[in-house]
């Protein structure tokens, strides 16, 4: 009996000691969920830090790394935990909103650019229920959001955490009588952007009401049942998934901005270590 316990103790201590072996490679943290993990790896690939296997694409994981010349160790963590784990990592690839939420937005070293596959795919869209795409109020909102003034404002206001898709010259329809438009949005940055365009829309006879939502289901269900006229909080892949799962009929009328992932410094503060 005592012998068994001593044996167990030795085993456990041995395991502890074995785990204490450290490694000398660079540790880069990425989000551990399917959507963002793949994006993070693609960003690292774009920066030339590693190469993914053919066809891995946006659902890549750390097991799909084909070439790893700098012997980087990928550490998948809960996305929201990446900022707080920076002191234990060399770098981390973090979603813009989590970074700005943690107050480290301005430390970003590099972000996805607007042309990248990730930005194009994950741009945030303005949505309406199928059939309402051409409503004058919605078209007015879209035009204002895509105007140069507003797109520039987005670029200037968020320090790279929120980036415009690129200005488009869209026609703002003439609206004779004031119409109301109720748009559901996430608090940041979507509702803030809407607040900025609210006075502009008022000049064009559209009275914009902003309804804030804290979750990612209700803006769509409220749109589907007509409680709101439009929503602005999700990206296209999420919308496609939601329509498929829930049988809803929501369509996007335009992509307004994207929230890039960025590489943030941890124990190391420059990506120059990765230049050959």
């Amino acid at each position: 009996m005592k012998k068994l316990l001593s044996l167990a103790l030795v085993l456990v201590l041995a395991l502890s000691l074995a785990a204490c072996g450290g490694s000398a490679s660079y540790k880069i943290g990425i989000p551990n969920d399917a959507t963002n993990g793949g994006r993070a790896l693609m960003l690292l690939q774009d920066l030339g830090i590693l190469t993914l296997t053919e066809g891995a694409g946006l659902s890549a994981t750390e097991n799909d790394i084909a070439e790893n010349p700098y012997n980087v160790e990928i550490v998948p963590l809960e996305a929201a935990n990446l900022p707080i784990s920076l002191p234990d990592l060399d770098f981390a690839v973090i979603n813009g909103n989590y970074a700005s939420g943690a107050g480290i937005g301005d430390q970003v070293l590099v972000t996805e650019d607007a042309e990248s596959v990730a930005a194009q795919t994950y741009g945030n869209v303005l949505c309406v229920k199928e059939g309402n795409e051409n409503s004058p109020a919605v078209q007015a909102l879209l035009a204002v959001l895509m105007s140069e003034e507003v797109q520039n404002w987005i670029a200037d206001s968020y320090n790279g955490v929120v980036m415009p898709m690129g200005a488009q010259d869209l026609e703002i329809p003439e609206i004779a009588e004031p119409v109301s438009l109720n748009v559901g949005a996430s608090p940041s940055p979507h509702a803030e952007i809407l607040e900025y365009v609210q006075p502009i829309l008022a000049e064009h006879n559209v009275e914009l009401t902003i309804t804030e939502f804290d979750d990612y289901v209700m803006p769509n269900t409220s749109l589907e049942d007509g409680s709101i006229d439009a929503n602005y909080f999700q990206h296209q892949p999420y919308l496609d998934d939601f329509n498929a799962e829930n049988g809803t009929h929501i369509v996007s009328v335009g992509t307004i901005h994207y929230e890039p992932m960025g590489v943030y410094p941890g124990k190391s503060d420059s990506l120059d270590v990765f230049s050959k």
Binding site: N32, D33, A34, S59, T61, V75, P76, L77, S85
Partner: peptide, 20 residues
């Protein structure tokens, strides 16, 4: 503990099995 990058079977089941 997958949230802090700790690995383990539960983490594998969730990340690779369920999410993917």
């Amino acid at each position: 503990t997958g949230a802090v990058g700790a690995g383990g079977l539960g983490n594998i089941a969730f990340r690779f099995g369920y999410q993917r």
